[in-house]
């Protein structure tokens, strides 16, 4: 463990700076930029995944050999996130059919208009 002898753990510092930069870029893209909404959403979701990667690999020792746990930590996270993707995307997909759930006409219209606005961007 030569790494633990160092006074300042550089990989933690780099990970922290990377996280800050990615947070600021995501916030800027969402709040300030004039990019199309779809691109903003795709971009900030990719940034979120990258940040999660920073946490896992630079802070959480997910691939530490001395743990004696082999690939288990990595596998748990990978399968957890794969399931998360399936649950979220699957729910959105299934629930996208037959969208009239007793909303008042007014809200329905409002929502429709909203989604038209998005596609118009």
């Amino acid at each position: 463990m030569a790494d633990s002898k160092k006074r300042v753990p550089m990989n933690h510092v780099i990970g922290f700076i990377l996280s800050l930069v990615m947070t600021l870029v995501a916030a800027w893209a969402a709040i300030q930029s004039d990019l199309p909404v779809t691109w903003v959403i795709i971009g900030i979701m990719i940034l979120a995944l990258l940040q999660a990667g920073v946490q896992l690999f630079m802070f959480m020792h997910v691939t530490e050999a001395s743990s004696g746990n082999g690939h288990v930590p990595w596998n748990m996270m990978f399968h957890g996130f794969a399931l998360a993707g399936i649950i979220v995307a699957g729910s959105l997909f299934v629930m996208s059919f037959g969208h009239d759930h007793g909303d008042t006409g007014e809200h329905q219209q409002h929502e429709q208009q909203e989604s038209e606005d998005h596609s118009g961007h």
């Binding site: 288990v72 930590p73 996270m77 998360a84 979220v88 959105l92 629930m95």
Partner: peptide, 28 residues
């Protein structure tokens, strides 16, 4: 110690799925 930490990784995997259900509900 090793088994305890491995067990906690399994717990975290379950937590990811717990939050996934809440995210899915929110998204829907």
């Amino acid at each position: 110690g090793q088994m305890g930490i491995m067990g906690f990784w399994i717990f975290l995997g379950a937590e990811v799925v717990l939050f996934a259900t809440l995210f899915a509900t929110y998204a829907v």
